[in-house]
Design a protein around this nucleic acid. Structure first.
Length: 622
RNA sequence: GGUUCCGUAGCUCAGUUGGAUAGAGCAACAGCCUUCUAAGCUGUGGGUCACGCGUUCGAAUCGCGUCGGGAUCACCA
């Protein structure tokens, strides 16, 4: 297998074989599937393959919980869809104690599972600490997730925010799937772009520092990057008016030549340049740390390109000796990928220096050999799809079989209504500004609603932070990662409807009720009597809770936190409907009251658990 | 041009082993707070799932083609 986008993982259906949560050590899908097989064998004397049995959730407009599609069996039964459904339905009802009733609509056999099954399921999960999540490191599989990977010449913007949120959330999802996870950040701290900022600072900085200016370090350095670009463009313009072609002017402008000279000095370890580089990078790191802290992401290890950029040369050398790579007359080294439908790829320049690809080959080898990771996930924008396709292919050609375990988690761009963001032109949405705006909006809205009257300033601020960040994170994560998404700063991020605050609000409602119950001396039971009568709405809620483990697995396999986000929205929506329709604390029959409290509490726990996978906090009140 | 991703309501998005009448939110309009938090709930309107052909009992979903949009194909990273 190469990268994910070329070889998607085997599709896995909605239903999994998770043996842990059922009273009979079987999932609904499992025992029904088995029952249908038995039915076909008994009724028609045919043993069918598993993939012929198609199960799906029963649509809401029909009664039943799970539906078996009859069409694939018609050749076997040699009867009409309706009649086949009747026969199989009757067999299942008679032979499976969990099946309460059935109905046939067209070619669909709708089965109703009895209440005691669902109650047992609830009783089962209430005792589990982390329902839905696998035990930490239980698979024995080690996954490294590389994300964030910023350049040190400018502050983080909205695009980075998407990257960080996806990387962090995926790491949480992998953990919930029982993998050992190492989160790493490969900081691009060297190269011409940093030299541009450095040069601009030397020329026009007048000794300005984060301390002297009060600016955040990454912003300060970013300002000089912009300054460089302005001055550079002016030089080009002047040269062009003097008769040079655009292309020549771009190469010959004094500023760019100076920057390149600075890079050469850096590579030659010139003391002055290196110490300037160290100083400005340290400003940036301080700024990044602050941003990472605010948005709540972290790393187990940070790599710096200045320390890894020489890696990979040995690998290329060996590939050359083995005749897998080839040298051109000008001494540059290449991989020929034309037979694979790609182009030739440069791996060493004619002067023997390495390129981006070379070091990525090196770091991949290092990680697999030294850290014994089983899988490597690169969270990188889709503009680098080609790069990762090539990286994996070259490694395979060089004989590294683990290259099949490199995966590029490719995500789409964040676009603004005005089009693409360009940092050099200042048309970016800055990460720090954005977070601040979100929190401000949360504060305004909360004040307007009078929600947090009577709280200390500190408590209230913390809640504004949780809500503002929740809105931002959810907004970004609910979209399928591989799709480009639109961000409209004017409309900003909503707090109503399918949003983070909506889900957080649902959680606080539940918490509020649980608190009140405790205050009134009501104890939420540890288990529920199987004989209880469950309303259809309550069952809908239970069935959603039931899906949670499968959603976590889907999200892990398909590399999509959006599945978690959409699930938790559905859950919150369903709960709110339930909340409006039924009295809970006010229910007079204590059996029902306690059951509804019990159900509410579990729902709250699953909401919190799912939001945690997204890296979103939930407040106790809002 | 080659490769690749995408195109679903006015807007932002769900819709994953092919299944029943394609769903949410926002925006618009109409309702629901002396009753567990109205950041909520209910209802109305809104669709040629870009288009065509094919495979199938059945296609938003799979295949081929067309149109439209993004990305990429550097001795940049």
């Amino acid at each position: 297998m190469l990268f994910f986008k070329h070889h998607p993982p085997n599709k896995i259906g909605k239903y999994y074989l998770c043996v842990s949560i059922s009273i009979h050590n079987m999932t609904v899908e499992n025992f029904i599937s088995k029952g249908v097989k038995d039915a076909l064998l008994t009724l028609y004397h045919i043993n069918v393959a598993d993939n012929l049995i198609q199960l799906q959730e029963t649509k809401k407009e029909f009664s039943g919980d799970i539906t078996v599609v009859m069409f694939p069996f018609l050749k076997i039964s040699k009867k009409s869809p309706e009649q086949t459904g009747q026969e199989i339905g009757l067999f299942l009802k008679n032979n499976l104690s969990e099946i309460e009733d059935f109905g046939v609509v067209k070619g669909f056999l709708n089965l109703s599972i009895n209440q005691s099954y669902w109650v047992s399921f609830l009783n089962d999960i209430i005792s589990k600490k982390d329902y839905g999540k696998a035990k930490p490191c239980s698979t024995g599989r080690s996954v490294m997730v590389e994300y964030s990977s910023p350049n040190t010449n400018k502050p983080l913007h909205l695009g980075h925010v998407r990257n960080n949120l996806l990387g962090y959330s995926m790491s949480m999802i992998f953990k919930a799937n029982g993998h050992h996870v190492t989160m790493v950040n490969l900081v691009n701290d060297r190269g011409i772009h940093i030299c541009k900022s450095m040069l601009a600072w030397t020329k026009w900085g007048a000794g300005e520092t984060p301390e002297s200016s009060g600016k955040k370090g990454d912003h300060l350095v970013g300002d000089f990057y912009v300054k460089f670009d302005i001055e550079y463009k002016q030089e080009i313009k002047n040269l062009v008016s003097e008769g040079l072609k655009q292309e020549e002017a771009e190469k010959q402008a004094p500023l760019i030549m100076e920057a390149q000279e600075m890079l050469r000095k850096w590579e030659a370890k010139d003391t002055e340049v290196v110490s300037l580089w160290e100083m400005m990078n340290s400003w940036v790191y301080k700024g990044f740390e602050e941003t990472y802290r605010i948005i709540g992401v972290s790393f187990d290890r940070i790599y710096y390109e200045s320390q890894t950029y020489l890696l990979g040369k040995e690998i290329v050398k060996k590939g050359l000796e083995d005749g897998i790579l080839f040298r051109k007359p000008d001494n540059s080294v290449w991989a020929d990928l034309t037979k694979d439908g790609l182009d030739e790829k440069l791996l060493l320049r004619s002067d023997g220096t390495s390129v981006y690809m070379t070091q990525d080959l090196g770091t991949a080898c290092q990680r697999f050999s030294e850290y014994h990771v089983n899988e490597m996930i690169y969270v990188v924008g889709n503009e680098q799809n080609y790069h990762f396709q090539v990286l994996s292919l070259i490694l395979l050609k060089l004989g590294y079989t683990w290259a099949s375990q490199l995966k590029h988690m490719s995500y789409g761009m964040v676009e603004l209504p005005s089009g693409k963001m360009k940092s050099r032109e200042g048309t970016v949405v800055d990460a720090d500004d954005l977070v601040k705006e979100m929190i401000d909006t949360a504060r305004d809205m909360s004040d307007e609603l009078g929600k947090l009257d009577g709280y200390t300033k500190e408590q209230a601020e913390n809640i504004y932070r949780i809500i503002g960040l929740g809105a931002l994170k959810y907004f970004i994560l609910k979209v399928d990662p591989k799709k480009n998404m639109l961000f409209d700063p004017k409309e900003s991020v909503d707090f109503n409807g399918n949003t983070g605050p909506f889900i957080q609000y649902t959680y606080t409602r539940i918490q509020s009720m649980v608190r009140k119950a405790t205050e009134n001396g009501i104890t939420i039971p540890q288990s529920i009597e199987k004989s209880i009568i469950i309303d259809n709405k309550e069952k809908q809620l239970i069935k959603l809770l039931y899906k949670y483990p499968a959603i976590i697995r889907d999200a892990g396999v398909l590399l999509s936190p959006a599945l978690i986000a959409n699930f938790v929205y559905d859950l919150a929506k369903e709960y709110n409907q339930f909340y409006h329709e039924f009295p809970i604390l006010k229910e007079e029959d204590s059996t029902f009251r306690d059951f509804r409290l019990f159900l509410s509490k579990i729902t709250g726990e699953v909401i919190q658990s799912a939001m945690d996978l997204l890296g979103v906090e939930v407040p106790e009140r809002m």
